[in-house]
Simulated assay, not measured.
Amino acid sequence: MFFVSAGFNVTLDVFQTDLNLLIAVTLVAMIGKIAGTALFYLPSGFGWREGLAVGTGMNGRGAVEIIIAGIGLQMGIITAEIFSILVFMAIFTTLTVPVLLTWTTNWLKKRGELVHQETRDGYLILGANPLGIYMAEKLKAANKLTLVDSNRELVAIARKKGFNTVYGNILKEETMEEANALELGTFIALTGNSEINLLAAQLAGDLFYIPKKIVTVSPNEAGADVDLLDPINASSMFADKTNLTPWFQKISSNQFQEKIVGVETELTAREWIKENRDEQNPILAVFILNTEEELRAFHYKEIISPGEKVVFLQ
């Protein structure tokens, strides 16, 4: 309703009577936003070119400028012509965003200065429980790794084993910050509470931009399901709904076997689970071992290539 009412005060006559002023205002607005962003970006140490790219992304103007101009028009501070110029300026600068942002991004890419989220490595594991410790022990050799838990006893055990472990509520930003979430590339939630796992994954993605989010989903918990994973761009750990309690008990009492089997043909993680499911002797697929002997988490969105191996517990 606001934009419709604002449109009634816009006049197209400015393209004939005040075209030069319209062009000047638009150019000043663009240069001020882009150059200003680049200038204040310099102290970050990432260079003025990246600052220009960020500035082109911020160049879009929408509701804020038009709202301020509307207030000025109602108070008689500006005329209908100036209001129209400001509205068209907001429209034109917004339209430049996809064009200029694409151009500056490609420019950075050609210079080798474009930073991708996927270049972030390391793991943030929610759950210093026996399974979390088991996975951390396997991954710590080649990766930065941090564990988070709200149980003081589990945190103390993990720290005693030499792991970087943070005590706190994972749903609080300060806990994520203490865990250096902005530097890590994969978030894995290994608690028995699916709702907490999903909310934590959403926080990890929305505020800390962790590109890969892997969540454990319980088979018998209401209110949290795999259908909620796609909206937050997450995947289900173990490629299946999993009750973790029996595995916590097996690992803590050392009543499990670790097995490794090779894969001869390409298949998805879900297909592998279907082919190897054993109701009498449940298995828990935890890792995929590639041809270079590197481990990665086994989850729903993984594709297992020929020559790779699956590490599972039984």
Rank of each mutant, 00 (worst) to 15 (best):
A63L: 14
V64K: 00
V64N: 01
V64W: 00
E65N: 02
I66Y: 05
A69D: 09
G70V: 06
G70M: 07
G70Y: 03
I71N: 12
I71W: 10
G72F: 05
L73P: 06
L73F: 05
L73Y: 08
Q74D: 13
Q74R: 15
M75W: 12
M75Q: 14
M75T: 14
M75F: 13
G76H: 01
G76I: 02
I78K: 04
I78D: 07
E81L: 11
E81F: 11
E81A: 14
I82A: 11
I82N: 05
I82G: 00
I82P: 05
F83R: 03
I85A: 01
I85F: 05
L86D: 01
L86Y: 05
L86E: 00
V87M: 10
I91V: 15
F92C: 08
F92N: 03
T93I: 12
T93P: 07
T94Q: 11
T94M: 15
T96N: 04
T96E: 04
V97P: 07
V97M: 08
V97F: 07
V97L: 08
P98Y: 05
P98W: 09
P98D: 09
P98L: 06
P98A: 09
V99L: 13
V99I: 15
V99D: 01
L101W: 08
W103K: 10
T104N: 04
T104M: 11
T105W: 05
T105K: 11
T105H: 02
N106A: 12
N106F: 11
W107F: 13
W107M: 13
L108K: 07
L108Q: 04
L108D: 01
R111A: 15
R111V: 03
G112R: 02
G112L: 04
G112V: 01
E113S: 11
E113D: 09
E113C: 06
L114E: 02
V115N: 04
V115Q: 09
Q117E: 13
Q117N: 13
Q117L: 15
E118V: 13
T119R: 11
T119A: 12
R120L: 14
D121G: 14
G122M: 09
Y123L: 00
L124F: 11
L124C: 08
I125R: 06
I125H: 07
L126H: 04
G127M: 00
G127Y: 02
G127C: 04
A128Q: 08
A128D: 10
A128E: 07
N129S: 09
N129T: 05
P130D: 09
P130I: 10
P130K: 08
P130S: 10
L131N: 11
G132P: 01
G132T: 04
I133L: 15
I133H: 06
Y134H: 14
Y134Q: 13
Y134R: 13
M135R: 00
M135H: 00
M135D: 04
A136V: 06
A136S: 13
E137V: 07
E137W: 08
E137D: 13
K138H: 12
L139F: 04
L139P: 01
A141N: 10
N143M: 02
